[in-house]
Amino acid sequence: MQPICDANMRHVADELLYRNHPDATAALIEDDRVATARVCNIAFYETGISKLVGRRKVFVNTPQEWLLKPELLPPHPEQVVIEVLETVSGSPKVIAALHKIRSLGYEVALDDFVLTPETLPLLDVANIIKVDVRQPMNWRHIYLYQARGLRLLAEKVETLESFSRLKSQGFELFQGYFYARPETHRETSRHRSSNHAALLRLLAELQREDTDYRKLEVLISQDPQLTFMLLKYTNSALLNRRGGILTIQQALNALGLNRARTITLTIMMANNGPASRLLLAQALTRAAMCEHLAEEPQGTAFTAGLLSMMGLLINDSLSELLEQIPMEPAVREAILFRRHALGELLEDIDAFENARTQNWTAAKTETFNRVWIKSQQWTTEILHAVTPAEP
């Protein structure tokens, strides 16, 4: 699931990135359809779209065969954006199908769109144009899209500078890893610098197996917003509670150490600016995947997954951060150098996140897809519970 944000860096949509069956090739159209059917079945029917992304939109890459059979499209058209791939031309049959899809309530996005005489008719049925900003842009075409009232989505935005420039040029939606670059976090550097030392002290205390709850209580109480959100979460319906948890100590006792670690770090990172919130979803999903897939203690695997992205989350050297946090040497080596079984798992998850799964077996691919869906669902629930609603 790759986040899509608006011009205020609010997380408003996701692209559903399902890793295809490893044996599929461009010539095996049937396999592509099966892969799309599999992800839609898991995401929309088994899991449920509200559990997966809350109220955000979902962009779904759609084979041309599915465009011509709208009855195969996923449910909840009010939340689904149908992505028309760049290989699809504007033939009369496709245009008629897309008119039907629009009438059903779906939005239509043209992916990696390049305007040609053959693709021109697609502009009549589109809502969104996705532009790969790494390629030279034809501004005459961009102005045409804007004049038609089409929303522009910038793909593969890699830096905050590019994000700011494209925003000023009229792009409304953005997709890429610009929010994971260190310069993204400068907007909140003053807030972070005042909390950085406190975060590290709290992070170090949370990693101790012999954590002193009284010391932990003191550290948490120094942050009023963290205290409020922790109590709010502990009393939430997610834990089947209706009040009764009034102190930090009661909250820590109710949560237990492993859950207290997760929630406390999530709240602190979610309050670290919009860029961190976008990256946090990926970090939590990675951590949950580690927990589900690791052979060693689940708490250790979850923590390793989360810490593997901590350098990006708080814009600091990961190796220096880990030196300040008590942990087993093997866990540190797994995070930094991908050693041992846990390190190999982190390497596999990184490969999955970046679609480097061509040599995987079908069983391994399917396992990671299912675990990813489950982990993404959990992440959505956690972030919904501990972060304020977007305006």
Rank of each mutant, 00 (worst) to 15 (best):
P3Q: 11
C5S: 14
D6I: 01
A7K: 13
A7Q: 12
N8M: 07
M9T: 13
V12R: 05
V12T: 13
D14F: 15
E15P: 11
L16A: 14
Y18R: 02
A26D: 10
E30M: 07
D31W: 08
R33A: 05
G48P: 12
L52M: 07
V53E: 00
V53A: 10
R55Y: 06
V58S: 00
F59S: 02
N61H: 12
P63D: 09
L68K: 12
L72M: 14
L73H: 04
P77K: 07
Q79S: 09
E83Q: 14
V84T: 03
V84H: 05
L85K: 08
L85I: 10
V88Y: 09
G90H: 01
K93T: 15
I95R: 00
K100V: 06
I101F: 02
G105M: 15
D112G: 02
F113H: 10
P121Q: 08
A126W: 04
I128D: 03
V131A: 03
D132T: 05
D132H: 02
V133S: 00
R134A: 06
I142H: 06
Q146W: 04
G149K: 12
G149H: 05
L150D: 08
K156G: 01
S162K: 10
Q169V: 03
G170C: 07
E172I: 05
L173K: 00
E183H: 06
E183Y: 00
H191Y: 10
H191C: 02
S193E: 15
H196L: 15
A197P: 01
L199E: 06
L200S: 02
A204G: 13
L206A: 02
R208Q: 15
E209Q: 12
D212I: 14
D212V: 14
R214H: 11
E217Y: 00
L226H: 08
M229T: 14
M229E: 15
R242Q: 14
L246C: 08
Q249H: 14
Q250N: 05
L252H: 05
L252R: 03
N253Q: 13
L265A: 04
T266F: 03
I267D: 09
M269D: 03
N272K: 06
N272M: 09
L278E: 02
L280A: 07
L284N: 06
A288Y: 10
H292P: 00
E295Y: 11
P297A: 14
F302N: 08
G305L: 11
G305T: 08
M309R: 15
I314Q: 11
I314T: 09
S317T: 04
S319Y: 05
Q324C: 04
Q324F: 05
Q324G: 07
A330F: 02
A330P: 00
V331F: 03
V331N: 02
I335T: 04
L336E: 13
F337G: 02
R338A: 12
R338P: 06
R339E: 15
H340I: 08
L345N: 06
L346Q: 01
E347K: 09
D348Q: 15
A351C: 08
E353H: 12
V371T: 15
S375V: 09
T379S: 09
T379N: 04
E381A: 09
H384G: 14
V386T: 10
P388I: 03
